[in-house]
Design a protein around this nucleic acid. Structure first.
Lengths: 207, 207, 207, 207
DNA sequence: TATGAATGAGGTTTCATTCAT
DNA sequence: AATGAATGAAACCTCATTCAT
């Protein structure tokens, strides 16, 4: 009996995933508003009505996708365990990881951006569950390294934001097919190293 | 006769502007799809039908807005004339200017992003008329300074992209009401200096 | 074997009742169209599909409810046995009884009215099995009393209709929460007496 | 200019009427829920979308119809001016008038009943603007006649309700095609007289 | 026999666009 | 050139019904 119950639950969870994945694909492909529920259903290989057995409506798909994004990355580990490591190594790894992790979802994220922006509950979820945690972790990390003496005593809060902003901005360049960005993305390690060097050593020549 | 004609033309041009400004306001406010032609007409203090005397349709408003953005900044001057100036001063001024220039249009840009992205003709216009010129200018500038010896011999193409990406990313943080970013935006000079110092000197302590 | 069979039948009959009662409750509560099969199933503590093992569909529930109403009252007895009794007593008892009997079903009846009205087979059933018998009985009764000399030689057919119409109309007043009607309904005997006196003695003062 | 304005307003009012009449016809014909907006549009000889330029939605059509019903009858005049007249004449005229006035709208009323019942704002409007005024007028009238000495000192409140209830109930009998009621409705004067006599003189034989 | 997930026809509503005035 | 009422395609969503388990 518990078996049956859990099997049903598992099946329902599968369906939810199936639908969410389809929605993610179609949203990323066409943008939120141009995506029709019919297309999403087709992409999920289900009837249109079935979606509504699992989600309250099109909005809810968006909510769920934001929620799912928030669950993805357990970056805390990376951040906190690595204060002792060489800052160069850390940044390289961090950038490389973000490049690979976020990139496939980026079209989706941009498709969702205006909706998130204009939809207060969505916006709050996005900010509090995704944006602020990422910023806070980076900020803590920068602060720790400053105390370490590994970094200059800069404004940690803004520096953390700059690091995150740069990554976000470069993903936008990718979306618009900037050939240089795309090409350099092929070798994430190298790009990560370049950015790291930029952040750590700056552009001014050292004598 | 030429008089009459040009007066008419001028009048038509005014109307176009009136409508475009209204559209920009409403798009920025509600996002492209949630904005209705009725709202745009109301914001422009015109009847709905009048819009269609000046634009082919809602899409065309988007096209026109992208076109208008491309005409705005004659930044070439700033870039090319300033190679001789101190790199610190230049960056500070550049960042400060961008912060003030772009910021008010940023909501609009994000509202348009998914449309631009999914609308090939729009996308090409945006990339070729706005993005690539901005990148190219920055890239030329960086390259010139490297040749100058004012900057280290880094990868100019990617560095230029990083600079632009960082600015773009920070505007997104503003849109999402990140309090630290907003607060620092109040004193653009200071923020510009901080970012400049980050780019020029890096984070690693100099002995 | 016959045992098993009859037990099955009894069980099936129970299920039918269980479903019909649930349907009656939900129809009365929400109206026919706003009532969903899901709600009915929940009210019956069954799965949606089960309903279709006992009824052909939602319409059939309506048909069955009309049928069930027709079976309820064996009023014939009351009517025919009571010709000898005092007309006052009879009317009082008749009204009081109807007030108590029909009232709980009245919301249901009103919820069903438009459906019955627009659904020819339902309509015919309702008219021939419920309305006409009630009218006919009352008419026979009035006629008998006229022959008795207990009532004036009025038009028995229309008088019977008037009596029934008055009762029906007052129930509608109850549905719409007319406070006077509701209050007087608390003491059915008194109300019955009042109506009886109205019918028997009229409004004109007797000298 | 004022001309243009008022012409436009008049035109809009005509459209509203055109749509309301179509809606009334279709609701009466099919019931509220079985009536589709498409049918209403067709009945009004307009496109479906046009309805929404004049009404907020299907619900609003119902609201408007209730509102319109409330404006119809200026019965106050009849009631108040006629206290001096012979009670028999008054009742006859009252009944005859109601039979002719309400009858054509009765199918519509029944179609709307369940909606009104289950839709609190609608219900309140119906009760306060239609039902209570009608009751109150009749009640005042009865009370005045009692004071006059033209009627016995009965419970005026309940008597008024009984009168109204009887009329309402007989209309329901018409809806269900009760042949006797229909036939007697052909000669409203006669039927009115019969009912009047019933109310005034009662059924009991006078010695 | 009971279940309830899947179905999809059909409903209401929105809104960009047209066009007679 | 400006208007705004009319249009109708197309969207989202509901829910009675089916059917594999």
């Amino acid at each position: 009996m518990a078996q049956t119950h859990s099997r049903r639950e598992r099946r329902a969870e599968e369906r939810r995933q199936q639908i969410l994945e389809a929605a993610a694909r179609v949203f990323a492909d066409k943008g939120y508003h141009r995506a029709t529920t019919r297309e999403i259903a087709e992409a999920a290989d289900l009837a249109e009505g079935t979606i509504y057995n699992y989600f309250a409506g099109k909005d809810d798909l968006l909510m769920a996708l934001v929620g799912q994004m928030a669950e993805l990355p357990e970056r805390d580990a990376l951040y906190s365990q690595s204060v002792d490591r060489d800052p160069g190594e850390f940044f390289v790894e961090h950038f490389a990881q973000r490049m690979m992790q976020i990139e496939p979802n980026y079209r989706l994220l941009v498709a969702m951006l205006p909706e998130i922006l204009h939809h207060p509950p969505l916006r709050e979820r996005y900010v509090s569950e995704l944006m602020q945690p990422a910023i806070a972790m980076m900020e803590r990390h920068v602060r720790a390294r400053i105390e370490n003496g590994q970094l200059r005593p800069v404004n940690a809060a803004l520096t953390a934001r700059a690091v995150i902003a740069l990554m976000a901005g470069m993903q936008v360049l990718m979306l618009f097919d900037d050939p240089v960005t795309i090409e350099s993305w092929q070798r994430p390690e190298e790009l990560a190293q370049l950015i790291t060097s930029l952040f750590l050593d700056g552009l001014r020549p050292r004598e």
